[in-house]
Design a protein around this nucleic acid. Structure first.
Lengths: 340, 340
DNA sequence: AAGGGTCACGAAAACGGTTTCGTGTTGAAA
DNA sequence: TTTCAACACGAAACCGTTTTCGTGACCCTT
């Protein structure tokens, strides 16, 4: 009742030819007589023969698998990146193996070693919080030294030489802040994270730069550094009471949504009294009430580009092609938490 | 500069012993002298030898990979399931290969065949909309007949014999409706999807059952069937105008959030004028304002159970163990869109 | 009839491991 | 001194492919 997978050997025995003949016949080598080819092909079709991927991988030294290592899958941004990677990779005949580092350095290292041991042809990854904090990238080094292509996206590091794709986070912070300043806002609160996140750091930089360009100076009292992991609404609430901002800029989506809600609960009207801008063009912002103006990071596009970069390296011999960093332009999506 | 992966053969040559000796030494067979074992192990550690997964897979006829096939990765529910699967599977030394069917029957079939050809030891999947509509499950049949274990979750079908894990969707619909009825609501609008989705069908059933138990009869005018793919707010708005419900029950999260927002824009106060309940304990509901009362589907737990079921089959010879269907109890999470 | 060229196919190595079955050497017992 | 077990290791098969290199059979040429 269990019909095990059919192999070349089965076909060969059944048809009383050799394994090599079957293999060649299936690939239509004209070294094999037309008769035999047709017989073999018919038989193979009948029994729905498909070559074993594992054997192919071993032989060809390529798996047609891409390893994707991300810190987190619950955040919409990463989800859209995966979506983009899948999209492109599947079209090129690659499978995507997703592993989660769960923001932990150790899990990142373990998963990476696991996958690097033959399971995948190349990596696409975004650094875990643990890795960004620790600044230890030996595992990445290891992999690239072994000749396994690596593409970093979003959370990247300058300490390693490889293909990268990011958005211009400084510009993103700048655009958002500029938008608020142009609305006439002057007390712009910034909800941000620990500084070891490259993206937050850059967005903060953009914020500062915009203030400077408008002849204002940075008031660190207006900046609130929150733990990335769990959002403490009380802290945000107290902060907003203290600062009494006329605008709130958040470096991610969740902080922005929380800020919005807390402001509303204080009886403030958004955007009449306070404007709010968040990051990531996610569901949260889209379905908020009022819907959240935000900076789109183009996750899907980022994923597609990362996959393209990786597959290009895998398929063409690009050993001598220098590594590229592709920088996407962020886009301001104006919705209802800012004034049009 | 490129240092290729080290193999048993390299070690063997370097140490002037045979490949078999190296292999045995690394596994501490006492058939090998203590001296040689230590020498080999030291060398292996030094060069950070790790056996090649592909070779192991070919030899052992097991990949330690689990194939996960889901319709969609942007929806929070599936994300949490993946999270649960990863969690459990990684702990057991398995990798997770995620593929998206994108709600399409064809993509589901292609991905499944791709993975079934040696890449994975077993499947965990949720049916695509296309498959549920078409009711064609030959590809599933194929796979199980070949002896590849399959675990279905959430969107399942009775037409195939395999392990399954679902929530009791009838009960879920019942609980939600009952809650609204107990609040005194009598005009309960139902936002639902096409009927080929097993989950929607069951939730609708629960809705009807609760109405009956409260001595009310089903008014199909109160039911709105929406396209799953894109939410047309205008249709919802018109529907709500027509029905003037005092409660809204949605079979998913997005419809619920939309309903909530539309009600608010009509000037209605939630939950004073209208109560709202949605499905999925997701970010959308959690961060809505007011936060959305919902039925939790326990995606993470579902993922963990599915992974456990699968790995149990893989590791113990359970050929004769009958297939199980595990039914999780849904939970009502009371938040701000209903009256406590 | 001998030599040479196709034709159609098979044997074998290779990918990187694991494992079974030998086998040469040693030491001790007889 | 012979015999035999224990010891320590190697050869080879195997997993399922691909691919290189033969090679036997046949036909044609001279």
């Amino acid at each position: 009742m269990l019909k095990p997978k059919i192999t070349l050997k089965h076909i060969a025995k059944e048809l009383e030819v050799s394994v090599s003949t079957v293999s060649k016949a299936l690939k239509d080598y004209d070294e094999i007589s037309k008769d035999t080819r047709e017989k073999v092909q018919a038989f193979a079709k009948l029994y729905n023969y498909k070559p074993n991927n594992i054997a192919l991988s071993l032989k060809n030294k390529r798996t047609k698998n891409i390893g994707v290592l991300i810190p987190d899958i619950v955040h919409h941004f990463f989800t859209t990146v995966i979506w983009g990677i899948e999209n492109y990779a599947n079209g090129k005949g690659y499978n995507v193996i997703v592993c989660l580092s769960d923001e932990s350095f150790e899990k990142e290292v373990i998963n990476m070693e696991m996958l690097a041991n033959g399971s995948i042809d190349g990596f696409i990854m975004s650094l875990s919080a643990g890795t960004e904090a620790k600044k230890d990238i030996n595992h990445l080094q290891e992999v690239t030294e072994r000749g396994i292509p690596l593409v970093l996206f979003d959370r990247v590091t300058d300490d390693i030489d490889c293909d990268k794709v990011v958005i211009d986070d400084v510009l993103a912070g700048y655009i958002a802040t500029k938008k608020l300043l142009e609305e006439g806002r002057r007390k712009i609160a910034l909800l941000t994270t620990e500084d070891f996140f490259s993206v937050s750091r850059n967005r903060n930089l953009g914020y500062q730069k915009a203030l400077q360009d408008f002849g204002m100076e940075l008031n660190t009292d207006y900046m609130l550094r929150l733990e990335y992991t769990d959002v403490n609404e009380q802290i945000i609430s107290d902060f907003l009471d203290r600062v009494q901002p006329d605008a709130v800029l958040s470096v991610n989506e969740v902080f922005g949504i929380c800020g919005l809600r807390i402001l509303q609960r204080k009886g403030l009207v958004v955007p009449d009294d306070v404007s709010v801008i968040g990051f990531t063009d996610g569901l949260l912002g889209r379905y908020a009430n009022p819907s959240l103006t935000c900076i789109a990071q183009h996750g899907q596009k980022m994923g597609e580009i990362a996959a393209k970069m990786l597959i290009d390296r895998l398929e063409n011999d690009q050993a001598e092609v220098p590594f590229r960093t592709q920088i996407l332009k962020p886009t301001l999506i104006e919705r209802e938490t800012t004034i049009n």
